[in-house]
Design a protein around this nucleic acid. Structure first.
Length: 438
RNA sequence: GCCCCCAUCGUCUAGUCUGGUCUAGGACACGGGCCUUUCAAGCCCGCGGCAGGGGUUCGAAUCCCCUUGGGGGUACCA
């Protein structure tokens, strides 16, 4: 039998990473098994379900590369099938009508639990069982005629031919009811796998309004989809060997439900960032370049292609996330320097720095060609003549020329920034230091 | 309250099913060193864990029980 899995979100807003991880595991399993991965929008809550939200879900999936094999099923269009199933259950004595809870709003359709213990083997958690006494009858169609989640979910999974239900473990209790429903409906039950929850950086469960938790936010913050996919796949699953940085293909190849862990995992932004850097470094050079150019354009920075290429080469591995590109490249592409406050405090606001900047400016002015080797020699000579350590010049020069105390090799950086701008910045910084306007 | 699930370094995990090869391995983070007169990358070193208590056994991270802690469920929500 061909494997068929599905992701069944209710499109009520953003997709947070707990949800998308369920989609990722369903997708990985389907791809690993050579099966199909489907999407069902559980949009029966008409108040909160919007087209906008549906688009958000699909964008998040597209971005992560979770391709769907068949047209998505909209649960709201399957209401008749749900009601028909309820009628069938009623007709065969598996359900009854009752004003449960005495709402006075009419009678709901209530499913009759079989009165037997129910057990199943969860692919992640192992054998799970529930006593008949702990299993109560439940409403499947409200008194206003709308189907309840449990009914709709099961009827649609049967309709879609789902063979493996892979979902969050907040659904384990529901599974006993769903199993009873499958049996009453005369359909074979799928295999179940319940994924442990994932909690945020503070160790709290992801709530509806949890900043930082939406898939779109990760894209906006400059993460690579491959990195998020890889990181999330490793939250609750491991390949069994020491591999961590894995490509999409490697993940698909290695994924099995048996290796999913059963305890909850905490999101670690630091490790995600590290992983992003790893994937960035493995990117094909031209794609990397294109993405960098896009980042620069977005920040309103540009330059002649070859020159930008030189700058980017200089930055290289220092870029760990797309949002690093613009601020790191700015000293090379923007006319005005943006001074980093900490760097200014630490390297410029020191005794004698202004004077040293003027001295080194004089020396640099005579360096021709304005290249790394000559600049280094000049700086060494100036330091020696002044009886100071090179560092006394190196650090202030770096901040004066780039605004930051971190960056590429100093002399190469100066060479790329160019004579005119370097000399101007050294003079300007000395002026501002003396005027106290820095 | 009742029912269910979970528990290895700060974090993610390997190891648990099929007790010994585990004086518990890897990764991120952190500390130190090399490199670099910055930062990043790379390399080396270090720090750090089987929640607690009882059993079973020649032997337990691995099996059993209890406790504690965390999570989920207990809707005419999904």
């Amino acid at each position: 039998m061909t494997v068929r899995t599905r992701f069944a979100p209710s499109p009520t807003g953003h997709v947070h990473i707990g949800n998308i991880r369920a989609a990722i595991f369903n997708w990985l399993f389907a791809r690993h098994e050579g099966g199909a991965f489907l999407l069902r929008l559980e949009d029966t809550d008409r108040e909160r379900s919007t087209e906008e939200a549906v688009r958000t879900v699909r964008e998040a999936m597209d971005w992560l590369g979770l391709d769907v094999d068949e047209a998505p099923v909209f649960q709201s269009r399957r209401t008749e099938a749900h009601r028909a199933a309820a009628e069938d259950l009623l007709a065969r004595g598996h359900a009854y009508r009752e004003d449960k809870g005495g709402t006075g709003q009419g009678e709901a359709v209530v499913f009759r639990m079989p009165g037997t213990d129910i057990a199943f083997r969860d692919q992640v958690k192992g054998d799970l069982a529930k006593k008949a006494a702990d299993l109560k009858d439940f409403v499947i169609v409200r008194s206003n005629g709308t189907p309840v989640f449990h009914l709709a979910n099961v009827v649609d999974d049967i309709h879609m031919g789902i063979t493996h239900v892979i979902r969050g473990d907040d659904h384990v209790e529901n599974t006993f009811r769903h199993l009873a429903l499958y049996r009453a409906l005369g359909a074979p039950a799928p295999t179940f796998a319940h994924l442990p929850m994932i909690v945020n950086h503070q160790g709290k469960p992801y709530a509806k309004r949890d900043g930082d938790a939406y898939v779109g936010d990760f894209r906006d913050k400059g993460f690579l989809p491959e990195a998020l996919l890889n990181y999330l796949a490793l939250l609750g699953w491991s390949p069994g060997d020491d591999r961590e940085v894995m490509s999409r293909a490697e993940l698909v190849e290695a994924f099995t439900l048996g290796r999913v862990v059963s305890s909850p995992a905490r999101m670690d932004p630091a490790k995600l960032l590290w992983m992003n850097g790893e994937h960035l470094r493995r990117m094909p050079r031209d794609a990397w370049r294109q993405a960098c150019d896009r980042e620069l354009a977005r920040a309103g920075l540009d330059g002649e292609a070859a020159y930008v290429g030189r700058v980017l080469d200089l930055l290289g591995d220092r870029i760990r996330i797309w949002t690093d590109v613009a601020p790191m490249a700015a000293p090379f592409l923007a006319e005005a320097v943006t001074y980093d406050e900490t760097s200014v405090q630490k390297r410029l606001k020191r005794e004698g720095v202004a004077a040293r900047l003027r001295t080194i400016r004089e020396a640099f002015a005579t360096v021709d060609p304005f290249e790394a080797a000559g600049l280094e020699a000049a700086l060494q000579a100036v330091a020696a003549a002044a009886g100071e350590k090179p560092a006394a010049f190196i650090h202030p020069v770096r901040v004066a020329a780039s605004g930051q105390m971190a960056g590429p090799s100093l002399y190469e950086m100066l060479e790329v920034i160019g004579r005119d701008r370097v000399l101007a910045r050294l003079a300007d910084t000395a002026d501002r230091l003396e005027a106290g306007t820095l």
